[in-house]
Amino acid sequence: MDADFELKTAFERSTRPHLTTLYHSAYRLTGSSADAEDLLQELLFKLFRQFDQWRGLDHPKPWMQRVLYNLHIDLYRKRRRTHGVNERTLDSDAQAIDEMANPEPSPAVQAEGDQQQRRILEALQALGPEQRALVTLHLIEGHTLEEVSAILDVPLGTLKSRLHRCKAQLKRTLQLEPFPENVRLA
């Protein structure tokens, strides 16, 4: 069998089971379907070039997530240099959210749901890329902080303090405190 064909087949066999999960992570990191697709494509380019480095791993997913995270940081910085950090493509998410498989809620519920989705995405986008990765991996995808530390290559103590700040900012942005800010507590 052709060596090139074997290589491609092995690569596809190794990556295919993780593609959907990686796309979900990419979406949470970037906040839009178009950017998630771009990020996943870049990830696959890089993973294929580095295939010799990780093909022997029993559990390659953390490797893939780390590459995804690093690419996300790179793309974020490039975008900030070229377009400005606030020029996001959140509007495209309204369409993406519309396209999600939903049991057709009423228009009022739909509108409210869309608004909530937008608020969450905007709150995530307001975080820095490193913070967003931490929130995605730990608070949304459920990785332990030790796992996140290995994936992001950030010391555990740094992650903990970063997480504390992230939570505080998200609670403020999403108004998740039990009482309005103007209510004085005992």
């Binding site: 491609k8 596809e12 959907t20 979406y27 959210i97 949304i140």
Partner: peptide, 22 residues
């Protein structure tokens, strides 16, 4: 955060992305 819905990637995109990568 858990209520954030994430769209599914289209199978065509995934196949195309894999193909392009290799």
């Amino acid at each position: 955060l858990g209520s954030l819905k994430v769209p599914e990637p289209s199978p065509q995109f995934l196949e195309h992305a894999l193909q392009r990568a290799t």
